[in-house]
Each structure stands twice: as structure tokens, then as C-alpha cells.
Design a protein around this nucleic acid. Structure first.
Lengths: 227, 227
DNA sequence: GCAAAAGTGTTGGCCTTACACCCATGT
DNA sequence: ACATGGGTGTAAGGCCAACACTTTTGC
């Protein structure tokens, strides 16, 4: 067995996003112990001896917040010495996406008090370097949204073209012409109109759609990675 | 100080690429010890207690191959239990790029015997899961080549449009029309013709260019990450 | 109450641009 | 055989305008 005395400790953290009221939210859990006791942080855990990284991330999410079954992907590994006051902790950060209608409506069943906050909220709320992790996850989300169907994993099952476009604008921070947007997204043939289903939240009722295309992108060798 | 008995060991590996004779090459080092003694593997090392991840990757490259000063970026963290026969070793894989004319011409000054091999060489040459790491690095390279000036970091200082196009075709595995390619790449205004410099390797002499644009892409928050 | 105004979703058209495809020419 | 240049068509998307449907506002 290999040994490496004094070596870095390995952890995982998860930034879970969803969307509600045209706002992108990230899930935080309140820390019950020092350091940063009482502060808000991403769910995270130390990696167990024979535990795959993704499994550790899912376990952290389930244990601390009660949420499971989300889409989850590795993001980046943060390893600056000094990012954790307890010592050298290297964290394999992940990001995750969940549809608001997939979340149970009741009380959270995790160990920790949890809270959804606006993902770009600028305050000094987050413990450790978790602000940096969230920012990088947002950047990755914006990048992948441009060329993969990733955003359909945070939208509810049925949505209007306006919902989809506003989410796009939120994530990529660009304005899109509603006309061109509809043309482009409908020409892909991946949206099925829900017959008779009309959204009445706005002035003029909008048609509701459902995404019927693939969620995995074919070209990505990424999916096969068993990290 | 935090403790985690029996926990994963943290390592780094580096896939260094360059280009020579219109072929994309990756650098391998021969393993001096078991496991995989005598086999070829990516340069790698265990992360020291207070060493940043990128520093560990550069140290592995320098110590084992004598190469330094390359462009280097974090790739992905591989952590399947069982990927290393010695026990649980999680590796933060990096990829690196170097121009052939930046490499010293003389003998390598590293501790290990090194060898450049064609990056896509399919044989069962590589130790551990390093074939998977190289494949993923190639995929990342192809992806980033499409929207960043990444490929200029592997090309020599001066090159012809044919060199650039063939590298592009090699990496992205797509054929490009030479005419359209020249139009597109020259219209960006990032290539300066070297006055009087002509490449005579082919039938008709081709003009030599030098890249004068930015190497860092502005939008990438990635660069600021101090992992 | 009723009519006008305002806000938002939906559809269509024009126009520029990028690039794919093709051909020609020079070495 | 390959570098370079030119020429044409097509498809995507930016921009603009018109129209549809509802809520809000003002009298």
C-alpha cells in the first residue's frame, strides 16, 4: 500500500442549481461546526477510501440536504494551500442541476438547514472559496448552454419560449431577440407544443412546450468518464 | 489539523503535446519502478503537503523530463477506485502544450527515459488509465481549438497556412477547404506575414506567418483559477 | 362600465454575414 | 500536388415591423 504522510486530504463539494421565478438559484447548507460555524456553504464531504468521486458528491448532497437523483458533473479541482483553515484540503468541485418540479415540496430531509439563494448574489455569504466555485460553475454553465441542451435540465417539464429565452439570457448574460430565438429553437425540432396547454402568467397567453430531444450530447466523451 | 485515515492519495499527471511533421505528439516517460515497471506513462507525481496542484504538475514534468515553461491547464480529476494497483490514488490530470522550437535540441535532462509518440497511437502502451487521460485531453483540445487560439501554443513560431490547417484537421478530425480556411483565419487579422520568408517544403512555396493575437481568451474566468 | 393604451407573445420579411462548394491559376 | 485567389449560392441570425391577445389605465 502506498503512503504519503502529511499529504492533502481529498474532499468534494457540490453546487446544485435550479430555476424559480426567472431566477437561477444555488443550494447552500448551513455549517454546523467550525470553521465558518453558522455560515453558508456548498454541500460537501470528505472522500471515503473506496468511494468514487461522483458517489461522494451525491452522498454529500443526500446526507446534508436530502436531495438525490440530480444531474451531476465534475467541474474543477480546487487545491490552493490555505483554502481551508484546518489544513490542506483539496476539493473536487461538482455542479448539479435539478428541475424545480422534481424537488419534493415538503420539508428538506437532510441533516443541515438549507437555503436557496440567487446564484449571482454578490454578498460575502459563502464559506471557504465557495464563491469562486459557484462563479466558475456559472461560467461553465454559460459555456455549455451555448452548445448543449443543458438548460433543459433546470427548466420545469413544461415551459414557454419566454421562460427558456429568459433563462438563456440570465445564464449567458446576453440579450436575445425573441423572434430569432423562437425561430432557432423551434427549427431544431426538439420542442413539442403541449396541446391546449396555455400559460397565463403574462399579458398575452403563451404556448407551453416540452423538450423531447436528447439530454446527452453525442460528441461528448465526457460522459464515459468514470472518475 | 484535519485527519482522514485510509483516505485517497492525491497525485497529478501531465499530458504534454507538441507537433512535429504534421503529427500531434504526446510525451511519455518510462516507469523505473513497479507497478508497470518499464512501461510508458505520463509524467506524474504525488502532491506535496503545501504544493499547489499546478506546481506539482510542473515539478513532475521538470523532474522526470527536464522540460519547463510550458502552457499548462487542469484537465479532469480521475478517481476511480482501482485505477492504481497500489491503492486509492486520485489523479488531477493536466494537459500541456509546447512549441517544438521551444524544446531544447539536446538530450533530455530529466530522471527518466522519455519518448514522443503519436497522440492517437492506439496500442496498449500506456500504464494505468493514461490512455483515457490522453484521449480526454485530445477531446478537450479539439473542443477548445474551435473557439480559442489554443493551437498557436503548439505550432512553431512561424508556420504556413497549410501547417495550421493540417493541425486543425488533425485535432478536430474534420476536413477543411484550404481556400475557406485561409479566408477565415486571415480575416481575423491575427496573422502577420513574415516578409520575404517563404516555406519551400512543398511544390509551390507557401508564405510563412506568425501569430500576433492574444493567447489568453478574454472571457475565460478559467485563467484566474488558482487551483 | 367602457374605450383606449400598454405590455407581451407570435409571425413574417429583409438583409448582412459566414462559409460551403466550385473553379482557375501559378509554381 | 499544392498554395493562392476569386466567384456563387445557401443557411443562420440580426434587425425591424406587424399583428394577436390580455391586462391596466383613464374617463
Amino acid at each position: 500500500m502506498i503512503q504519503n504522510p502529511g499529504a492533502p486530504i481529498l474532499a468534494v463539494d457540490v453546487a446544485l442549481f435550479t430555476v424559480r421565478n426567472d431566477a437561477l438559484l444555488v443550494l447552500l447548507a448551513r455549517r454546523p461546526r467550525p470553521p465558518f460555524e453558522g455560515a453558508w456553504a456548498l454541500p460537501g464531504a470528505l472522500v471515503r477510501p473506496d468511494e468514487p468521486l461522483e458517489a461522494a458528491a451525491r452522498r454529500a448532497l443526500l446526507e446534508q440536504t436530502g436531495i438525490q437523483g440530480v444531474y451531476l458533473e465534475q467541474l474543477y479541482t480546487f487545491g490552493s494551500p490555505g483554502r481551508d483553515p484546518r489544513g490542506r484540503v483539496v476539493s473536487v468541485a461538482h455542479y448539479a442541476l435539478v428541475r424545480p418540479d422534481e424537488l419534493g415540496q415538503g420539508e428538506p430531509r437532510g441533516e443541515r438547514e438549507v437555503r436557496w439563494v440567487a446564484a449571482r448574489e454578490p454578498d460575502g455569504l459563502l464559506a471557504f472559496d465557495h464563491r469562486q466555485i459557484v462563479d466558475y460553475a456559472l461560467w461553465r454553465l454559460a459555456s455549455k448552454a451555448e452548445y448543449t441542451p443543458l438548460l433543459y435540465r433546470v427548466l420545469p417539464d413544461s415551459f414557454t419560449l419566454g421562460d427558456l429565452r429568459r433563462l438563456w439570457e440570465l445564464v449567458t448574460n446576453r440579450r436575445l431577440d425573441p423572434s430569432n430565438f423562437a425561430k432557432r429553437v423551434l427549427s431544431q425540432g426538439m420542442l413539442a407544443p403541449l396541446p391546449g396547454a396555455i400559460d397565463r402568467r403574462t399579458r398575452r397567453p403563451a404556448r407551453l412546450y416540452r423538450y423531447v430531444g436528447p439530454l446527452e450530447v453525442p460528441g461528448a466523451a465526457e460522459q464515459e468518464l468514470t472518475a
